[in-house]
Measured scan of single mutants.
Amino acid sequence: GFPHNFQETTYLKPTFCDNCAGFLWGVIKQGYRCKDCGMNCHKQCKDLVVFECKK
């Protein structure tokens, strides 16, 4: 597997964290999205993600 390539992201529609399944709250920059596989997560979850990037 590969490490994720997370970038701070502004979501335009309701989005949930792929790590904890919690809602990504806020208006802008609600969470992080992996540029390579599209995984979404909270800032506090991005260092805890157990799934490797599937590129």
Rank of each mutant, 00 (worst) to 15 (best):
G1L: 12
G1K: 15
G1R: 07
G1M: 15
G1C: 15
F2I: 14
F2S: 08
F2Y: 12
F2V: 06
F2L: 04
F2Q: 06
P3K: 08
P3T: 14
P3G: 15
P3I: 15
P3D: 15
P3R: 13
H4M: 05
H4P: 00
H4A: 01
H4F: 01
H4S: 00
H4G: 01
N5L: 12
N5Y: 03
N5W: 09
F6S: 06
F6Y: 10
F6G: 02
F6N: 05
F6Q: 05
F6C: 09
Q7N: 13
Q7S: 09
Q7K: 03
Q7A: 12
Q7C: 04
Q7R: 09
E8I: 11
E8N: 08
E8S: 07
T9K: 03
T9R: 11
T9V: 05
T9W: 09
T10V: 00
T10A: 04
T10R: 03
T10W: 11
T10D: 04
T10H: 04
Y11Q: 03
Y11I: 05
L12Q: 05
L12E: 07
L12D: 04
L12N: 01
L12S: 09
L12Y: 08
L12W: 05
K13A: 07
K13Q: 06
K13T: 10
K13H: 13
K13N: 05
P14T: 01
P14E: 01
P14M: 04
P14W: 10
T15C: 05
T15H: 07
T15S: 08
T15D: 02
T15N: 05
F16A: 10
F16M: 06
F16N: 08
F16K: 07
F16H: 08
F16S: 06
F16D: 04
C17T: 01
C17E: 01
D18Q: 13
D18T: 15
D18N: 12
D18H: 04
N19Y: 09
N19M: 15
N19F: 14
N19L: 13
N19D: 10
N19E: 15
N19G: 15
N19W: 14
C20T: 00
A21W: 07
A21V: 11
A21Q: 05
A21I: 14
A21Y: 15
A21C: 13
A21N: 14
G22L: 11
G22I: 08
F23M: 12
F23D: 04
F23Y: 11
L24W: 02
L24D: 02
L24I: 12
W25C: 03
W25D: 09
W25V: 10
G26T: 03
G26N: 02
G26R: 02
G26S: 04
G26C: 02
V27P: 05
V27L: 11
V27K: 04
V27H: 03
V27R: 02
I28Y: 07
I28W: 09
I28L: 06
I28R: 10
I28E: 05
I28D: 04
I28A: 06
K29M: 11
K29L: 09
Q30F: 01
Q30V: 02
Q30E: 02
Q30C: 01
Q30K: 02
Q30H: 02
G31L: 02
G31M: 03
G31W: 01
G31V: 03
G31Q: 00
G31Y: 11
Y32K: 09
Y32S: 12
Y32Q: 03
Y32P: 01
Y32M: 10
Y32W: 11
R33I: 15
R33M: 14
R33S: 12
R33A: 08
C34T: 01
C34Y: 00
C34G: 00
C34H: 01
C34I: 01
K35W: 07
K35P: 09
K35C: 09
K35S: 12
K35E: 14
K35R: 13
K35Y: 14
D36Q: 07
D36M: 10
D36L: 11
C37V: 00
C37M: 01
C37L: 00
C37R: 01
G38H: 10
G38I: 03
G38F: 11
G38M: 10
G38Q: 06
G38C: 10
G38E: 14
G38T: 06
G38K: 15
M39V: 09
M39W: 08
M39F: 08
M39Y: 10
M39E: 07
M39R: 08
M39C: 03
M39A: 09
N40H: 09
N40A: 10
N40T: 12
N40L: 04
N40W: 02
N40S: 12
C41Q: 03
C41G: 05
H42I: 00
H42G: 06
H42A: 01
H42D: 11
K43E: 13
K43P: 08
K43H: 08
K43R: 10
Q44C: 13
Q44E: 15
Q44I: 05
Q44M: 13
C45E: 14
C45L: 00
C45H: 03
C45F: 03
C45Q: 00
K46F: 07
K46H: 14
K46A: 10
K46E: 13
K46M: 15
D47H: 05
D47Q: 14
D47L: 09
L48H: 07
L48D: 15
L48M: 14
L48T: 12
L48C: 14
L48P: 08
V49H: 15
V49T: 11
V50D: 07
V50I: 03
V50C: 14
F51G: 14
F51I: 10
F51Q: 13
F51D: 12
E52K: 11
E52D: 15
E52P: 11
C53G: 11
C53E: 07
C53Y: 07
C53M: 10
C53L: 13
C53R: 06
C53W: 10
C53S: 11
K54I: 06
K54Y: 06
K54V: 06
K54M: 13
K55D: 03
K55H: 02
K55W: 04
